[in-house]
C-alpha cells in the first residue's frame, strides 16, 4: 500500500521482471496516440455535423445526420471494427489490417474508435444548440438585428458548450486509455489489448495497476472539464 502511494504499482507475475509502471509506460503512448487522433477526428466531424443539423433543423440534411448518428452511436464497437476490417482489409485490400507500421494503418482503428464518440457529439451538439436557440435571449438577439449565423456561432455555440464539454471529458478518457476491442481486432500493441491478455492470464498486479491508472486518468480529465466550465461560463468561478 505504501508502495502504491509512492507511485509503484508492483511487478507483473506473468512477464517476470517487468514492473507494472514500465508496462504502462510502454503501452499507454501507443493507445494514447491512436486515441488522440480518434478524439480530434470525432470532434472535427461530430461538432460541425451537430451544428449543421441544428442550423438546418427539420430539413433533409438534419434528418440524414440525425439518422446516421443514432445508427453509429448504437452500433457496437466490435461489430463496426470487424466490418471495417473485412471490407477494407480483406475484401478491398485497400488498407493494412494490423499493427501500426504506416499512416494508412491508423485509418481503420481511428474510424472504428471515433464512430461512436462522433455520433454522440453530433447528437449532444444538436440538442444543446436547439435548446439555446429556443431561449428568450436568442429572440432578443434577433430583435437587435443580429444575423442567424452570428447568433449561432457567437452566442448559441458558447452556451451549448457546457453539455458538449461534459460529454467530451469521459469520452476522451475512455478513448485515450485504449479501447480493448478495437485494439484487439486491429492487433495494436496498446494498453487496452494488453489488459485483456492479462485478464486471461490472471496477471493480477497488472490488472490492478492498469485499473488504478485508468481511474486516475478519468479523475484528471474530469478535473480539466471542471476547469474548462469556468472558462466558458462566467457564473462558474473556481475561486471563492
Amino acid at each position: 500500500m505504501s508502495a502504491l502511494l509512492h507511485g509503484d504499482l508492483g511487478t507483473s507475475i506473468v512477464s517476470s521482471g517487468y514492473s507494472v509502471n514500465q508496462i504502462i509506460a510502454d503501452k499507454f503512448p501507443v493507445s494514447a496516440q491512436v486515441g488522440l487522433i480518434a478524439i480530434v477526428f470525432s470532434c472535427l466531424v461530430g461538432i460541425p455535423l451537430g451544428i449543421l443539423a441544428a442550423y438546418k433543423r427539420g430539413t433533409a440534411a438534419d434528418r440524414v445526420v440525425t439518422t446516421l448518428s443514432s445508427l453509429f452511436s448504437s452500433l457496437p464497437g466490435f461489430l463496426l471494427a470487424v466490418v471495417l476490417l473485412y471490407a477494407f482489409g480483406m475484401w478491398l485490400h485497400a488498407l493494412p489490417t494490423s499493427g501500426l507500421k504506416s499512416w494508412q494503418s491508423y485509418i481503420l482503428p481511428v474510424a472504428a474508435l471515433s464512430a461512436g464518440p462522433a455520433s454522440v457529439l453530433t447528437r449532444i451538439t444538436r440538442a444543446a444548440l436547439l435548446d439555446v436557440l429556443s431561449q428568450d435571449f436568442t429572440r432578443f438577439l434577433k430583435a437587435k438585428g443580429m444575423g442567424t449565423r452570428y447568433i449561432l456561432f457567437k452566442h448559441a455555440l458558447r452556451n451549448a458548450a457546457i453539455p458538449i464539454v461534459t460529454t467530451l471529458g469521459p469520452l476522451t478518457a475512455g478513448i485515450l486509455v485504449g479501447n480493448l476491442v478495437v485494439e484487439t481486432v486491429f492487433s495494436i500493441p496498446g494498453l487496452g489489448s494488453y489488459m485483456v491478455r492479462c485478464v486471461s492470464q490472471r496477471d493480477y498486479p497488472v490488472i490492478m495497476g492498469t485499473t488504478i491508472f485508468y481511474t486516475t486518468f478519468i479523475v484528471a480529465i474530469l478535473l480539466v472539464v471542471d476547469i474548462v466550465y469556468g472558462l466558458i461560463d462566467p457564473r462558474i468561478k473556481l475561486d471563492e
Binding site: 428568450d136 430583435a143 437587435k144 438585428g145 443580429m146 452556451n159
Partner: peptide, 26 residues
C-alpha cells in the same frame, strides 16, 4: 437581410422577461 438592418436599428423591441433576455455568458 434588409429586415435585420431594420431590427434593432430603426425598429426596436423590448420583451417581457428581463431575466432571460440577455445572453448569460457575455
Amino acid at each position: 437581410r434588409d429586415m435585420e438592418v431594420m431590427r434593432g436599428g430603426d425598429l426596436s423591441m423590448v420583451f417581457q422577461d428581463p431575466m432571460t433576455a440577455l445572453d448569460p455568458l457575455y
